[in-house]
């Protein structure tokens, strides 16, 4: 097997971990793929830089806000100097730039398997009603709001308590109209308009990670329930589940939108009713859970991008446990010095 050099971002395996280290680990575990993994970091302290058993080489990148030229220049440097065949961007903040310039990156000879720009827009919470409808599932009663007056009208119509959500980020629960207004102003100041006022639905939160091939097929998926989360809401312990209603809805999502690339769907499930809560157009930080259950999604993503045979053994066992733990690695200063002085190690 020829060597494939794949760069992954989000190697900040900290208390709010990025997905990159799990993706890198998954790629390394496919023994039929000869993958050299590059880590793309934004800070010299990102732990993935120092995890040389999963990440072979690391590069400091300019922030996505640096724009197209800075990104393409850095990727061009890595490509020309060290070779680079594919990128798997794993952070929300990177996806707008990678989806927008996917064609230009591909023209550089670097594959990037991300959702199209129109698919990317579906994650907006003001779009979820349409998505849920096309998945044949429900969306908690919601109203898109842009003013305090509309917030009050929405609360009156929906009834308390409500969730106040930014279009892309942040969600707060409100038990009174005043609390809803406070959350509205705070979220709007941080993330802009519009916001969504949404009914609080009862049920259990369940999540699915998967990859779509862009042609209406899945390259694998895995359903989980989070059993224990950190104070930041990040999974610490979870269990695999097979909820037929949710899995069916996900198949519809992939078929209908011909989704391309990784995704995480967050749902609330109350008996037979499935409510769509959120779409994340990237791998979640817990995606190694799928690999550990025999469904190596990052590997299939790379295989699909390079036209290699896919591992389509997509069945998994319900009741497999995910347990995250802390671990320390001790290293000398060389890697840190290299990253600081040369921007790579």
């Amino acid at each position: 097997m020829y060597e494939i050099k794949v760069a992954v971002s989000g190697i900040n395996a900290v208390d709010n971990p990025g997905p990159g280290v799990g993706v890198a680990r998954s790629l390394k575990e496919d023994k039929e793929l000869n993958v050299t993994v590059y880590g793309l970091a934004y800070d010299a302290m990102e732990p993935g830089i120092y995890m040389d058993w999963v990440i072979d080489k690391s590069f400091i990148m300019s922030y996505p806000s640096g724009g197209r030229d800075a990104l393409l220049e850095r990727l061009g440097y890595i490509k020309n100097r060290h070779g680079l065949d594919m990128i798997i961007p794993n952070l929300d903040s990177e996806l707008p730039i990678y989806t927008k310039y996917a064609n230009e990156i591909e023209e550089m000879g670097i594959k990037v398997y991300v959702p199209t720009e129109s698919q990317y827009k579906l994650r907006g919470k003001d779009k979820l009603e349409e998505v849920a409808k096309n998945m044949d599932i429900d969306l908690p009663k919601s109203k898109v709001v842009t003013s305090a007056q509309e917030v009050m009208e929405a609360v009156e119509d929906i009834g308390l308590p409500v969730m106040v959500k930014g279009a892309y980020y942040k969600a707060e629960k409100a038990y009174t109209t005043q609390e809803a207004l406070n959350h509205f102003h705070k979220i709007a100041a941080e993330w802009g308009y519009p916001l969504i006022i949404q009914k609080v639905v009862k049920g259990e939160e369940m999540n699915i990670v998967g990859v779509g091939d862009g042609e209406g097929n899945t390259l694998g998926k895995l359903g989980i329930k989070k059993l224990w989360v950190t104070s930041q809401g990040k999974i610490w312990t979870g269990v695999t589940i097979k909820n037929d209603a949710m899995l069916k809805a996900v198949n519809k999502f992939i078929e209908f939108y011909k989704w391309k690339g990784p995704f995480e769907l967050e749902c609330m499930v109350d008996k037979g009713n499935v409510y769509l809560i959120e779409i994340n157009p990237r791998f979640p930080a817990w995606s190694y859970f799928a690999t550990g259950c025999g469904i190596n999604l990052p590997s299939n993503l790379v295989r699909k991008a390079f036209g290699l045979s896919l591992n389509m053994n997509n069945d998994y066992e319900a009741g497999k446990l995910f347990v995250r733990y802390t671990y320390e690695t001790i290293t000398d200063m060389t890697a840190f010095q290299n990253v600081i002085s040369k921007g790579e190690n």
Partner: peptide, 15 residues
């Protein structure tokens, strides 16, 4: 999924 010790796992909900 039920084992002989009385541990019961519901694969639909994870309970």
């Amino acid at each position: 999924a039920v084992n002989s010790e009385g541990f019961v796992f519901d694969p639909t909900t994870g309970d």
